[in-house]
Design a protein around this nucleic acid. Structure first.
Lengths: 334, 334
DNA sequence: CTGAAAGCGCTTACAG
DNA sequence: CTGAAAGCGCTTACAG
C-alpha cells in the first residue's frame, strides 16, 4: 500500500546539480553540453533511472502503445502473427497492447481508448467489424493485416488469397480429383471470401467437378465436426481444400478418427503454412502466406501514418507460394 | 501530428454543470447525489468518455498493469498459459503487459519499470533468473507460475512435477521397457529438475534399467536433433520420456523421419498435455498439468499480495494426472 | 454532497 | 546551453 518509492527525474536533477528539464533534455536528445550530459547520465546509471511512461504519454503527443487485435491466441496461427508484429514493433521502439477474445469488442475498444494507443493493428477483421469501424471513428489510425475490408479507409496488407485458392484448385484438378469438398473460413473474413471465390471459379472453369462446401468458421472444433459429417455422407469427396491450416489439421484428425486414409482415400490442402504444417506427423500440402512480411509491412504502414495521418489509404498484396507435401495424391489411387 | 482531440473529464464536468472532481467521484464510486450522478453519466454516455489511464496511473497508487513474462510465444505451451493468465487478469480488471524473447531481459526489465507495472507473472523462470531477481530488488511483487525457484522470496505455483516424473517412469517400467531415454528440459528450469530427478529415482529404485539422457532445452529444434542422434546410435532406447509435450512432438517427428515406428519400436511419453496432444495425428501419452488452475492460482496470489505486500511467500503445488494415449506400448512387441 | 486546489512525473516552449 | 514555469488529465484530501 502507498506508492512504491521510485526515483524520478527531479531526484536525478538534484543529485546531478541541474534543472529537471535538463535531465529531460539529456534523455530525449536536446542540446546539452558534453559535461552536463555526462554528469546526468552518471546519476541516471547509478539509479538505473527509467522515466515514467505514464507521465510521458500524459504530456507528450504519443503513448508509444499500439493495440494488436487478434482472436484466439491458442489457434496456432495467431502466435506466429503476434510474434512477428511484436518483433517489428519492438524494433520501432513501440509497445504492444493485446486485445483478444477474453474480452468483448466493446471492452477492447474502451481499453484501447483509455490506454491512448497511437494506432491499432487488426489481424482478424470481419465485414462490418465493430471494433475497426469505431476505432476509425475515434480518429485512431488503423491497419488491417492479413484480413482486409472493402471500402474501409485504412491501410491494408494481405496475401494474394485469390492466387492461393487458384493454386489449391489447380493442384487438386491436376491430380484428377472430380469430387471435391471445401471447408470454409468465417463468412465475414476476406481471406475466406477470396480463397473460396478463386477456388470455386477455377473448378467451374474446369467443369465436370462436384463441389461440396461446409462451414468451418476458421475454428478447429467446428471444422472437425463438419468434416466428420462430410466423410460419413454417401457422396464423400476425394479431396478437401481447407481455408486455413488449422481447419486442415481438423480434417486430418477427423479423417483419422473416421478411418479414412490420407492421402490414399482423401487428399487435404490447407492454407497459411504455419510451422506445424511441416512436422512429419502432419506434413500438410498447403499454400504459404508470407506472415512475417505481412506483419512487417503492416506495422511499417501504420508507423508511417502516425507521421502523416492524411496519406491516402494504401493496400499491399503479397505473393503466396504453393507447398506440396504428403497429404495430397492422385484421385486414381482409390 | 498534434494530439488527437480526446474528451476529458473537464469537458464532461463543464457540460454536466459540475466540478471536475465530481465527475471523478461519479466514475470512481464516491458519494454523489442520485441526480448529479445521473446528469454526469448522461454526458459520459453521450461522448463515451474513457478516463485517461496515463493520468490515472500517474496520480493513483496503481497502474492496473501486470507484466507477464514468457519465452517463445510460438511454443504451443505459452499461448495456453498466456490465455489463461489473461482471462483471470481481465476478470480482476487488470491489463497484461507482455514480455517475450523478442527483447532481452534487460530491455524487459526497463519496459516493465517504465510502465509502472503493479506486479509480474513469471512463467519460465530459470535458476538465477536475471529478471525475476531484479524485479524483486526493485520492490515489485512477483509470482512464479509453472516454474519455481529455490530460496526465492516470492509466491510460487507449480504442478506436482515429481509425481509427473514418477508416473511416467512407472508407466514405462510396467510396459517392460528396460532401455529408456530421457529428453531433458532446460537445466535451470525447476520443471526439468523435478521431473528428471523423480524419473531417474524411480528407474534406479527398480534397477536393471539403462537410462540415456539427452538435452532438449525445451526447444523443438534442439529436441528434434537430439532424438535423431539418439535413434541412430547402436544402443537405441525402446522408450522416451520427454520433459514436455513440445519435445515429445519433436521426438514423434524425428522418429517418423528416421523410419522408427511409434509405438511399436519406440514408446514416447510427454509432459503437460497441451491441447495438440489429443489430436488423432499426435495422440500423445503424457502427464497432464493443470495449466488453467496454475494461472488462476498464480494471479490470485499476486492480487492478494498487492493488497498485503508483507504476507510471507506462499507456495502451491497442484496435482497432475496421467493420460494414456497411443504413443506407448509394451517393450515386448519388438 | 460538492467544489477549489494540490500534485502525480514528465515534455515543451520561453527566457536568458 | 540551461533554468523556471506551464500544463498534460486525472485522484485525493480538504473545506464548506
Amino acid at each position: 500500500m502507498g506508492r512504491r518509492r521510485t526515483v524520478t527525474s527531479v531526484q536525478i536533477a538534484r543529485e546531478a546539480g541541474v534543472a529537471q528539464s535538463t535531465v529531460s533534455r539529456v534523455l530525449n536528445g536536446g542540446s546539452v553540453s558534453e559535461e552536463t550530459r555526462r554528469r546526468v547520465l552518471d546519476v541516471v546509471a547509478k539509479y538505473d533511472f527509467q522515466p515514467s511512461q505514464a507521465a510521458r504519454s500524459l504530456v507528450g503527443t504519443r503513448s508509444g502503445l499500439i493495440g494488436v487485435v487478434i482472436r484466439d491466441l491458442t489457434n496456432p496461427f495467431y502466435p506466429v502473427m503476434v510474434k512477428a508484429v511484436e518483433r517489428v514493433l519492438h524494433q520501432q521502439g513501440l509497445r504492444l497492447s493485446l486485445v483478444t477474445d477474453v474480452m468483448t469488442p466493446e471492452e477492447g475498444l474502451a481499453l484501447l481508448r483509455r490506454e491512448g494507443v497511437d494506432g491499432v493493428v487488426f489481424t482478424s477483421a470481419v465485414q462490418d467489424d465493430p471494433l475497426a469501424h469505431r476505432m476509425l471513428k475515434h480518429d485512431i489510425p488503423v491497419v488491417l493485416c492479413h484480413r482486409t475490408l472493402e471500402d474501409f479507409p485504412a491501410d491494408q496488407v494481405e496475401a494474394d488469397n485469390a492466387t492461393a485458392g487458384r493454386l489449391a484448385a489447380d493442384h487438386l484438378l491436376s491430380l484428377g480429383h472430380r469430387h471435391v469438398g471445401m471447408v470454409c473460413g468465417s463468412a465475414g473474413a476476406s481471406t475466406a471470401q477470396q480463397r473460396g471465390a478463386a477456388f470455386r471459379d477455377r473448378l467451374r472453369a474446369h467443369g465436370d467437378v462436384t463441389l461440396t462446401e461446409v462451414d468451418g468458421d476458421y475454428d478447429y472444433a467446428t471444422a472437425y465436426g463438419a468434416v466428420r459429417t462430410l466423410l460419413s455422407g454417401d457422396r464423400r469427396p476425394t479431396a478437401l481444400f481447407c481455408h486455413n491450416d488449422i481447419m486442415a489439421y481438423a480434417a486430418l484428425n477427423a479423417a483419422a478418427a473416421a478411418g479414412v486414409r490420407v492421402p490414399d482415400e482423401l487428399s487435404v490442402v490447407g492454407c497459411d503454412d504455419v510451422p506445424l504444417s511441416a512436422w512429419e506427423r502432419i506434413d500438410l500440402t498447403t499454400v504459404r502466406q508470407p506472415l512475417e512480411r505481412i506483419a512487417q509491412v503492416g506495422v511499417e504502414l501504420l508507423v508511417q501514418r502516425l507521421d502523416e495521418p492524411d496519406l491516402p489509404p494504401r493496400r499491399e498484396v503479397l505473393p503466396v507460394e504453393f507447398v506440396e507435401r504428403s497429404t495430397t495424391a492422385p484421385a486414381s489411387r482409390i
